[in-house]
């Protein structure tokens, strides 16, 4: 039978998009799921993989974190030096404890970062990603956000993005290029 519906086709790269600034030039300060302060300087000399999301997100975020977990398993010990972080775009609801409960469902190498609204906004602008709150009729809200996974080399330079609808076979080679 022919199928219609959800497919992961290659998405068109955003032409003329501004690249994320190097990790070494970022200035945000966030808190991880163990309540430890994290700064970009802590990530120097390590390859970095960052995804933005929020724990109230039932589809895109767990799907991406499941994919990331599979990639990390495929890379095994090779990825042990890779910093992998989910940065919440919903710091109002995503406390460090909420993030701990959430990232605990995935590969243990994945950190969950949150912080003040200002620091999250600063991180978002340095990663050149966008997010916006979408209010619903019942007073609840959801977040639209850049869904790609950002990769950086150990020296802090931006390497590439794994797009949400990109063929997942390209992901592991992209990550591997940042590891050496």
């Amino acid at each position: 039978m022919l199928g219609v519906g959800a497919y992961r086709t290659r998405s068109r790269p955003a032409l003329g998009a501004v690249l994320p600034v190097p990790i070494s030039e970022m200035t945000w300060q966030l808190t991880d799921e163990k309540n430890q302060s994290v700064r970009p300087a802590d990530w120097i000399d390590r390859p970095v993989m960052v995804f933005f999301g929020f724990t109230w997100c039932p589809d895109v975020c767990p799907t991406t974190l499941s994919d990331i977990s599979l990639w990390l398993e495929e890379l095994g010990a090779e990825a042990d030096r890779l910093i992998v972080a989910l940065i919440s775009v919903d710091p109002e609801r995503d406390t460090p404890d909420a993030l701990a409960a959430y990232v605990g469902n995935f590969d243990p190498r994945i950190l969950g970062l949150t912080g003040s609204a200002d620091e999250v906004a600063r991180a978002a602008s340095e990663f050149r990603m966008t997010y916006r709150r979408v209010d619903k009729d019942d007073g609840d809200y959801t977040m639209d956000h850049t869904a790609g996974v950002f990769l950086f080399y150990p020296d802090g330079r931006f390497a590439s993005i794994i797009d949400f609808h990109e063929d997942r076979r390209f992901a592991v080679p992209k990550i591997r290029r940042t590891l050496s």
Binding site: M1, L2, G3, V4, G5, A6, Y7, R8, P58, D59, V60, P62, T63, S66, D138, D140, F164, H165
Partner: peptide, 18 residues
């Protein structure tokens, strides 16, 4: 559509249970 199948699957259509 007639003769076709459709998936509600991760990253596409889904039921949202609020």
């Amino acid at each position: 559509p007639a003769g076709q199948s459709v998936q509600l699957s991760p990253g596409g259509y889904h039921g949202m249970l609020m």
